[in-house]
Design a binder for these strands. Structure first.
Ligand SMILES: [Mn+2]
Ligand SMILES: [Mn+2]
Ligand SMILES: [Zn+2]
Ligand SMILES: [Zn+2]
Lengths: 131, 131
DNA sequence: TATTGATTTAGAATTAGTCTAATTATAGAA
DNA sequence: TTCTATAATTAGACTAATTCTAAATCAATA
């Protein structure tokens, strides 16, 4: 995918089902959870297709992915820049939309020498239910 | 581990070897890489022991762990708060010590309602070698 | 030295994710 | 519409990462 690539993603009924599952959940679902829910509308869908669809949708910017230690990747209905808080006791993942100061981002770019694509602040701690 | 737990970690020779491997590398090594290097000083060490040691050292705050999508967990010799930049082309992981404004952290705590333990800014993009 | 609990070990098991090859669906050409 | 080419889907094998199990070993101390 180059920066000039403007092809519209092809949504087969399987990809649509996977996309709908992710869009309709507030949670950040794992591939297995997506598979279980996609089967409700498309009983014949295969595990491989769910993985294929997740990769395709991600490559086309239609879903996000968040990886956390000690568990499978989770997929995100929100594709705009945002942040996460992770409860180390129960695994809860909370979305946050923080205002990251431009000076902080600039500092990260300067220090790393990277061309930035995205950035995120992650907070690890304990959620209110787990105190 | 409670907040009042002050037991000193027990370092067997296997745990010491694993710890030394991580301390002596600037890179963020995977468990497999740690295993290979630990075998150089302790040829009989087992894979299970490396994993056990990594968990133990992490639980005792002697090493850090960073998980990234599409690859094994990587271990970090730096245990003080710091940030990472990840090259999406070659996988390079760069340490950064950024000054996160207190107001940003406060905002994250307020929005999430979490009791914070740690936090990190992650920058995804392209490193200078990969332009 | 004997006891005992912790640690290590080899290898089996599990989990997450990818790959393969055959089948099916779809879009465009004839 | 029918044919053909290409892409997508499928089942299941495969791989990689990590955890588990149970026996053996080690280390502290009674
Ligand atoms: Mn999110
Ligand atoms: Mn680091
Ligand atoms: Zn929690
Ligand atoms: Zn790179």
């Amino acid at each position: 995918m180059s920066a000039t690539d403007v092809r519209k993603p092809i949504l087969t009924k399987q990809r649509r089902a996977v996309f709908d599952v992710i869009q309709s959940s507030v949670d950040h679902l794992s591939a297995g959870e997506v598979f279980d829910r996609a089967k409700e509308t498309l009983p014949g869908i295969s595990f491989a297709t769910v993985y294929n669809a997740l990769r395709y949708l991600k490559e086309n910017g239609m879903i996000g992915e968040v990886s956390l230690s000690g568990g499978p990747a989770r997929f995100d209905r929100i594709t705009t820049r945002h942040d996460h808080a992770i409860c180390e006791a129960c695994g809860k993942l909370v979305d946050m939309k923080l205002e990251i100061p431009g000076s902080l981002l600039k500092s990260a770019i300067d220090v790393s020498g990277f061309k930035p694509r995205s950035f995120e602040l992650t907070l690890w701690g304990t959620c209110s239910q787990c105190v």
